[in-house]
Design a protein around this nucleic acid. Structure first.
Lengths: 211, 211
DNA sequence: GACTACATACCGACCGGTTGGTATGTAAGC
DNA sequence: GCTTACATACCAACCGGTCGGTATGTAGTC
């Protein structure tokens, strides 16, 4: 992850433009969407030229795919290092995940909304490569929750009509929908209330007390 | 309001360009998004010319606002005439609404996904007028659920930590999020499962049996 | 009922700026 | 001296939007 900086040897800081382009892509696409983000604007935001862009990405679509993958990596790290994994009880870890996501709902709307959810809305019919990259990002993230959900089910001897995988995906659906409402209303509050409903659902599902 | 149709006489109903444009806008924007929908393409799909477009709409943004309002009207009728209102029990009406939404999840993805949810994702920071029109569409639709939710709460003497309004909005969030997952996975199944989780949540909230 | 006056509905050529993409150049490292 | 990492210059297609024009009412006047 830290190969960008000149690090140990006298290596001359490669990949500078590519990283700046990717970071600018996350910010710009989260703000105005994929189609409305022009390459000129993106390059200006990154402080590089069009030549640099097409040196690193063969097309705008390729940038979209790379941006989705970059998003997966950075958010993957964020969640991997989050404190909710420390709970000994698996249900507490699942609820801790929800609480962690709730705590992320601060700042401006482009600061907490999801890049791949935004992108896939626009390009699902027109760019299969980006659609698949977004699917991978969401699905792989959901998968990180399955083990804890299954452990919580097993601890209670539950054999319900739903699967851990479907609950993990439903949790992502609630987050994505909460982002849309936040965008519509211009604030994070409505999203936070939806996340509260999600936490309540999980508590009820597992027979925990409702607050 | 009904001056469009030729009604009684065999009059050829002049003003159909606007209606055709609006219908084409719903289909095209639901498929490729707002920004990626060009006016040339839209006019071609509607079978009218650019001149007709700018006669009826003063800008592309104005079309976006009109499309959101048109969407509100057509979906408003669809839900107003839906059978779930006939249940005598308010909770059954709320669950009937969810079941109705689930039953709508058929056909291609652009056929069942939400116009305003798609649009607001893209333009929330760049077009306040469209953002507000989308917010009105979602919020007014959610409001149609509040009375039934409140009646169901009152029937059980419930005074929970959540409001009918917030549950109604959460239901919309789940739908919108389900659409995003459907777009990412390229099929309706994942959305249907999320809607099932929503129904289960409502049953648990109101103490009904879980299936 | 013919004439004028004006409005509405629509057409399609056209405009200047922007778009994604390319071709070529160049300076630095191995 | 060849590859990598950019920069500069440029292009054709396309973008949203304008504009002059026409065909078809419609209402009032005599």
């Amino acid at each position: 992850m830290a190969e960008t900086s000149a690090s140990t040897a006298g290596k001359p800081a490669k990949q500078d433009a590519k990283a700046k382009l990717l970071d600018a892509a996350l910010a710009t696409i989260r703000t105005k969407g994929y189609a409305a983000t022009s390459l000129d604007e993106l390059c200006a935001a990154a402080g590089v030229t069009k030549g640099a862009f097409f040196h690193h990405f063969k097309s705008k679509d390729a940038l979209g795919v790379a941006a989705a993958e970059h998003w997966s990596e950075t958010t993957g790290e964020l969640f991997a290092n989050a404190p909710y994994h420390d709970h000994p009880d698996p249900l507490e870890r699942v609820l801790g995940y929800v609480a962690f996501r709730r705590s992320l709902l601060t700042g401006g709307i482009p600061d907490f909304t999801c890049l791949v959810g935004t992108m896939v809305q626009e390009v699902h019919e027109t760019s299969p490569a980006i659609r698949e990259a977004c699917d991978r990002s969401i699905s792989n993230h959901a998968k990180t929750l399955e083990a804890d959900i299954e452990a919580a089910m097993a601890a209670r001897g539950m054999k319900p009509g739903w699967s851990a995988a479907s609950l993990a995906l439903h949790m992502q659906a609630v987050m994505q929908g909460a982002f849309i409402l936040a965008k519509a209303k211009g604030g994070a509050e409505v999203a936070a209330e939806s996340v509260d409903h999600l936490a309540r659902y999980i508590e009820l599902l597992f027979g925990a007390k409702t607050r």
